[in-house]
Amino acid sequence: MRNNSVNNSSNRTKILIAVGIIIIVIIIRITSNNTLGLAPVESFMKQMLYPVQEVSNNTSTGVVYFLKGLVDYKKVKEENDSLKEEVGRLETFNSELLQYKVENDELKKLLQIQQQNTDLVMVNAEVIGRSIKDWYKTITVNKGQTSGIQVNMPVVNSSGFIGKVTNVTKSTAEITLLTDPKYGAITVVTTETGYPGILLGDETNQGTLQMIQIPANANIMEGYEVVTSGLGDLTFKNLRIGKIKSITNSSDGLMKKAIVEPYANFNNINFVSIIIKQEIKPVTQTPVETTDPQNAETQ
Protein backbone atom coordinates (compact mmCIF):
# COMPACT_ATOMS: atom_id res chain seq x y z
CA MET A 1 0.00 0.00 0.00
CA ARG A 2 2.75 2.43 1.06
CA ASN A 3 4.94 1.33 -1.85
CA ASN A 4 2.06 2.04 -4.19
CA SER A 5 1.64 5.56 -2.84
CA VAL A 6 5.40 6.23 -3.19
CA ASN A 7 5.34 4.89 -6.74
CA ASN A 8 2.32 7.01 -7.54
CA SER A 9 4.04 10.13 -6.17
CA SER A 10 7.20 9.33 -8.16
CA ASN A 11 5.21 8.75 -11.30
CA ARG A 12 3.33 11.99 -10.78
CA THR A 13 6.61 13.91 -10.45
CA LYS A 14 7.96 12.29 -13.61
CA ILE A 15 4.77 13.14 -15.46
CA LEU A 16 4.98 16.72 -14.20
CA ILE A 17 8.59 17.00 -15.30
CA ALA A 18 7.76 15.55 -18.69
CA VAL A 19 4.83 17.90 -19.13
CA GLY A 20 7.00 20.81 -17.99
CA ILE A 21 9.69 19.88 -20.49
CA ILE A 22 7.15 19.57 -23.27
CA ILE A 23 5.68 22.98 -22.43
CA ILE A 24 9.13 24.52 -22.28
CA VAL A 25 10.13 22.97 -25.60
CA ILE A 26 6.95 24.31 -27.19
CA ILE A 27 7.66 27.76 -25.78
CA ILE A 28 11.23 27.55 -27.03
CA ARG A 29 9.99 26.59 -30.47
CA ILE A 30 7.49 29.42 -30.56
CA THR A 31 9.82 32.05 -29.18
CA SER A 32 12.70 31.05 -31.40
CA ASN A 33 11.39 33.47 -34.01
CA ASN A 34 8.52 35.31 -32.33
CA THR A 35 7.97 36.51 -28.82
CA LEU A 36 5.41 34.79 -26.63
CA GLY A 37 3.58 37.89 -25.63
CA LEU A 38 6.31 38.40 -23.05
CA ALA A 39 7.58 41.59 -24.61
CA PRO A 40 6.24 43.81 -21.79
CA VAL A 41 7.90 41.58 -19.19
CA GLU A 42 11.16 41.62 -21.09
CA SER A 43 11.00 45.32 -21.62
CA PHE A 44 10.20 45.87 -17.93
CA MET A 45 13.14 43.74 -16.93
CA LYS A 46 15.48 45.47 -19.33
CA GLN A 47 14.17 48.83 -18.20
CA MET A 48 14.88 47.88 -14.61
CA LEU A 49 18.33 46.61 -15.41
CA TYR A 50 19.21 49.52 -17.68
CA PRO A 51 20.69 51.95 -15.10
CA VAL A 52 22.82 49.25 -13.53
CA GLN A 53 23.76 47.96 -16.94
CA GLU A 54 24.84 51.42 -18.05
CA VAL A 55 27.04 51.90 -14.99
CA SER A 56 28.40 48.41 -15.39
CA ASN A 57 29.06 48.97 -19.07
CA ASN A 58 30.94 52.21 -18.43
CA THR A 59 32.99 50.60 -15.71
CA SER A 60 33.54 47.48 -17.76
CA THR A 61 34.67 49.44 -20.77
CA GLY A 62 37.34 51.13 -18.68
CA VAL A 63 38.43 47.87 -17.11
CA VAL A 64 38.38 46.10 -20.46
CA TYR A 65 40.49 48.78 -22.09
CA PHE A 66 42.90 48.61 -19.19
CA LEU A 67 43.11 44.83 -19.42
CA LYS A 68 43.43 44.92 -23.19
CA GLY A 69 46.14 47.51 -22.76
CA LEU A 70 47.97 45.14 -20.44
CA VAL A 71 47.56 42.28 -22.87
CA ASP A 72 48.55 44.40 -25.85
CA TYR A 73 51.33 46.13 -23.95
CA LYS A 74 54.08 44.08 -25.56
CA LYS A 75 52.62 44.55 -29.00
CA VAL A 76 52.06 48.26 -28.46
CA LYS A 77 55.55 48.62 -27.04
CA GLU A 78 57.06 46.88 -30.04
CA GLU A 79 55.00 49.03 -32.36
CA ASN A 80 56.00 52.12 -30.42
CA ASP A 81 59.69 51.16 -30.55
CA SER A 82 59.41 50.50 -34.25
CA LEU A 83 57.67 53.83 -34.82
CA LYS A 84 60.25 55.63 -32.71
CA GLU A 85 62.97 54.02 -34.79
CA GLU A 86 61.19 55.09 -37.96
CA VAL A 87 60.76 58.63 -36.65
CA GLY A 88 64.44 58.72 -35.70
CA ARG A 89 65.40 57.50 -39.16
CA LEU A 90 63.17 60.08 -40.83
CA GLU A 91 64.48 62.82 -38.56
CA THR A 92 68.02 61.90 -39.50
CA PHE A 93 67.03 61.83 -43.15
CA ASN A 94 65.27 65.15 -42.80
CA SER A 95 68.22 66.78 -41.05
CA GLU A 96 70.49 65.41 -43.77
CA LEU A 97 68.27 67.00 -46.38
CA LEU A 98 68.23 70.27 -44.47
CA GLN A 99 72.00 70.12 -44.24
CA TYR A 100 72.22 69.57 -47.99
CA LYS A 101 69.90 72.51 -48.50
CA VAL A 102 72.03 74.78 -46.32
CA GLU A 103 75.19 73.58 -48.06
CA ASN A 104 73.59 74.08 -51.42
CA ASP A 105 72.54 77.61 -50.54
CA GLU A 106 76.01 78.40 -49.26
CA LEU A 107 77.69 76.99 -52.35
CA LYS A 108 75.30 78.90 -54.58
CA LYS A 109 76.23 82.13 -52.81
CA LEU A 110 79.92 81.33 -53.12
CA LEU A 111 79.46 80.66 -56.79
CA GLN A 112 77.62 83.93 -57.13
CA ILE A 113 80.51 85.77 -55.50
CA GLN A 114 82.94 84.11 -57.86
CA GLN A 115 80.81 85.07 -60.83
CA GLN A 116 80.60 88.67 -59.63
CA ASN A 117 84.35 88.91 -59.00
CA THR A 118 85.89 87.42 -62.08
CA ASP A 119 89.21 89.05 -61.24
CA LEU A 120 89.57 86.97 -58.08
CA VAL A 121 90.98 83.48 -58.40
CA MET A 122 89.42 81.42 -55.65
CA VAL A 123 89.63 77.90 -54.34
CA ASN A 124 86.56 76.56 -52.65
CA ALA A 125 87.06 74.42 -49.60
CA GLU A 126 84.94 72.64 -47.05
CA VAL A 127 85.42 73.15 -43.35
CA ILE A 128 86.60 69.89 -41.83
CA GLY A 129 87.50 71.05 -38.36
CA ARG A 130 87.02 73.77 -35.81
CA SER A 131 89.04 74.83 -32.83
CA ILE A 132 88.09 72.76 -29.84
CA LYS A 133 88.69 75.60 -27.44
CA ASP A 134 86.55 78.65 -27.38
CA TRP A 135 89.47 81.02 -27.13
CA TYR A 136 91.03 79.84 -30.42
CA LYS A 137 88.94 81.00 -33.34
CA THR A 138 90.29 78.90 -36.14
CA ILE A 139 88.89 76.52 -38.68
CA THR A 140 90.51 73.85 -40.78
CA VAL A 141 89.62 73.30 -44.42
CA ASN A 142 90.21 70.40 -46.77
CA LYS A 143 92.43 72.20 -49.24
CA GLY A 144 96.14 72.86 -48.83
CA GLN A 145 99.37 73.51 -50.67
CA THR A 146 98.43 71.13 -53.47
CA SER A 147 95.54 73.46 -54.31
CA GLY A 148 97.83 76.45 -54.36
CA ILE A 149 96.99 77.73 -50.92
CA GLN A 150 99.61 79.68 -49.00
CA VAL A 151 99.86 81.43 -45.68
CA ASN A 152 98.23 84.87 -45.40
CA MET A 153 95.77 84.31 -48.21
CA PRO A 154 92.41 85.94 -47.44
CA VAL A 155 89.38 83.78 -46.94
CA VAL A 156 85.78 84.67 -47.68
CA ASN A 157 82.50 82.91 -47.41
CA SER A 158 79.07 83.74 -48.78
CA SER A 159 78.69 86.56 -46.22
CA GLY A 160 82.03 88.23 -46.76
CA PHE A 161 85.60 88.32 -45.53
CA ILE A 162 86.17 85.96 -42.61
CA GLY A 163 89.89 85.52 -42.03
CA LYS A 164 93.22 84.46 -43.43
CA VAL A 165 95.24 81.33 -43.87
CA THR A 166 97.72 80.96 -41.01
CA ASN A 167 98.96 77.45 -41.44
CA VAL A 168 99.11 75.16 -44.47
CA THR A 169 99.84 71.50 -44.99
CA LYS A 170 99.72 69.64 -48.28
CA SER A 171 96.05 68.90 -48.05
CA THR A 172 94.69 71.14 -45.30
CA ALA A 173 94.82 74.75 -44.30
CA GLU A 174 94.16 76.42 -40.97
CA ILE A 175 92.29 79.67 -41.14
CA THR A 176 92.37 82.16 -38.31
CA LEU A 177 89.10 84.01 -38.14
CA LEU A 178 88.78 87.77 -37.91
CA THR A 179 87.23 87.49 -34.47
CA ASP A 180 90.40 85.95 -33.06
CA PRO A 181 92.26 88.72 -31.17
CA LYS A 182 95.52 87.17 -32.34
CA TYR A 183 94.58 87.73 -35.94
CA GLY A 184 96.23 91.09 -35.91
CA ALA A 185 95.24 94.35 -37.46
CA ILE A 186 93.61 94.75 -40.82
CA THR A 187 93.18 98.01 -42.63
CA VAL A 188 89.65 98.83 -43.58
CA VAL A 189 87.52 101.63 -44.91
CA THR A 190 83.86 102.45 -44.67
CA THR A 191 82.09 102.04 -47.96
CA GLU A 192 79.89 105.08 -47.53
CA THR A 193 82.52 107.67 -46.73
CA GLY A 194 85.84 105.95 -47.36
CA TYR A 195 87.21 106.75 -43.94
CA PRO A 196 90.05 104.41 -43.10
CA GLY A 197 90.47 102.53 -39.87
CA ILE A 198 92.13 99.54 -38.33
CA LEU A 199 90.09 96.49 -37.52
CA LEU A 200 90.93 94.19 -34.61
CA GLY A 201 89.43 91.08 -33.15
CA ASP A 202 87.32 91.43 -30.05
CA GLU A 203 88.70 90.09 -26.80
CA THR A 204 85.28 90.22 -25.17
CA ASN A 205 84.38 87.07 -27.09
CA GLN A 206 81.08 88.50 -28.29
CA GLY A 207 81.78 87.78 -31.93
CA THR A 208 82.20 91.43 -32.81
CA LEU A 209 85.19 93.39 -34.16
CA GLN A 210 86.71 96.71 -33.18
CA MET A 211 87.51 99.44 -35.64
CA ILE A 212 90.07 101.80 -34.15
CA GLN A 213 92.17 104.76 -35.25
CA ILE A 214 89.18 106.67 -36.54
CA PRO A 215 89.64 110.42 -36.36
CA ALA A 216 87.24 112.15 -33.97
CA ASN A 217 85.87 114.28 -36.75
CA ALA A 218 85.45 111.37 -39.14
CA ASN A 219 82.10 111.18 -40.74
CA ILE A 220 81.07 107.69 -39.85
CA MET A 221 77.78 106.52 -38.53
CA GLU A 222 76.20 103.40 -37.22
CA GLY A 223 75.13 101.10 -40.01
CA TYR A 224 78.03 102.00 -42.30
CA GLU A 225 79.57 99.10 -44.11
CA VAL A 226 83.19 98.19 -43.50
CA VAL A 227 85.34 96.65 -46.25
CA THR A 228 89.02 95.85 -46.67
CA SER A 229 91.11 98.73 -47.96
CA GLY A 230 93.79 96.67 -49.69
CA LEU A 231 96.59 98.24 -47.67
CA GLY A 232 98.98 96.45 -45.32
CA ASP A 233 99.36 92.68 -45.37
CA LEU A 234 96.08 92.14 -47.07
CA THR A 235 96.28 93.37 -50.60
CA PHE A 236 92.74 92.65 -51.60
CA LYS A 237 90.28 95.48 -51.67
CA ASN A 238 86.61 95.76 -51.06
CA LEU A 239 86.07 92.48 -49.27
CA ARG A 240 82.92 92.95 -47.21
CA ILE A 241 83.38 92.53 -43.49
CA GLY A 242 80.41 93.91 -41.60
CA LYS A 243 78.48 96.92 -40.42
CA ILE A 244 79.20 99.44 -37.70
CA LYS A 245 77.07 98.57 -34.73
CA SER A 246 78.05 101.32 -32.32
CA ILE A 247 80.58 104.15 -32.04
CA THR A 248 82.30 105.37 -28.91
CA ASN A 249 84.88 108.07 -28.32
CA SER A 250 88.25 106.98 -27.02
CA SER A 251 89.42 108.21 -23.60
CA ASP A 252 91.72 110.91 -25.01
CA GLY A 253 88.91 112.32 -27.12
CA LEU A 254 91.04 112.38 -30.27
CA MET A 255 89.90 109.18 -31.79
CA LYS A 256 86.75 107.16 -32.14
CA LYS A 257 86.22 103.47 -31.74
CA ALA A 258 83.53 101.56 -33.56
CA ILE A 259 82.16 98.13 -32.85
CA VAL A 260 81.67 96.25 -36.10
CA GLU A 261 79.24 93.40 -36.38
CA PRO A 262 80.52 91.01 -39.01
CA TYR A 263 78.21 89.74 -41.74
CA ALA A 264 79.48 86.24 -41.37
CA ASN A 265 78.20 83.99 -38.64
CA PHE A 266 81.52 82.69 -37.39
CA ASN A 267 79.87 79.88 -35.50
CA ASN A 268 78.40 78.41 -38.65
CA ILE A 269 80.88 78.28 -41.46
CA ASN A 270 80.77 75.22 -43.67
CA PHE A 271 82.27 76.33 -46.97
CA VAL A 272 84.84 78.96 -47.69
CA SER A 273 86.62 80.41 -50.68
CA ILE A 274 90.32 81.12 -50.40
CA ILE A 275 91.45 83.93 -52.64
CA ILE A 276 94.64 82.84 -54.31
CA LYS A 277 95.25 85.89 -56.43
CA GLN A 278 93.67 88.93 -57.92
CA GLU A 279 94.18 89.22 -61.62
CA ILE A 280 94.96 92.71 -62.76
CA LYS A 281 92.72 93.79 -65.56
CA PRO A 282 92.96 96.91 -67.63
CA VAL A 283 89.36 97.79 -66.79
CA THR A 284 88.04 98.77 -63.35
CA GLN A 285 87.75 95.77 -61.09
CA THR A 286 84.38 94.60 -59.91
CA PRO A 287 84.01 94.63 -56.14
CA VAL A 288 83.12 91.53 -54.14
CA GLU A 289 79.64 92.77 -53.45
CA THR A 290 77.75 95.76 -54.67
CA THR A 291 79.43 98.88 -53.44
CA ASP A 292 78.10 102.35 -53.82
CA PRO A 293 79.56 104.81 -56.32
CA GLN A 294 80.95 106.98 -53.52
CA ASN A 295 83.17 104.17 -52.36
CA ALA A 296 84.31 103.52 -55.86
CA GLU A 297 85.40 107.11 -56.13
CA THR A 298 87.48 106.93 -52.95
CA GLN A 299 89.43 104.04 -54.37
Binding site: I27, I28, T31, L38
Partner: peptide, 16 residues
Protein backbone atom coordinates in the same frame (compact mmCIF):
# COMPACT_ATOMS: atom_id res chain seq x y z
CA UNK B 1 13.80 32.74 -16.39
CA UNK B 2 15.96 35.81 -15.91
CA UNK B 3 18.41 34.68 -18.57
CA UNK B 4 15.64 33.86 -21.01
CA UNK B 5 13.88 37.14 -20.37
CA UNK B 6 17.08 39.05 -20.82
CA UNK B 7 17.92 37.35 -24.10
CA UNK B 8 14.30 37.43 -25.24
CA UNK B 9 14.58 34.53 -27.66
CA UNK B 10 14.09 30.81 -27.28
CA UNK B 11 12.42 31.45 -23.96
CA UNK B 12 12.73 28.39 -21.77
CA UNK B 13 16.00 27.23 -23.29
CA UNK B 14 17.98 28.28 -20.27
CA UNK B 15 15.44 26.84 -17.86
CA UNK B 16 15.73 23.55 -19.67
Amino acid sequence: VLMDLYIGQMIGSHIL
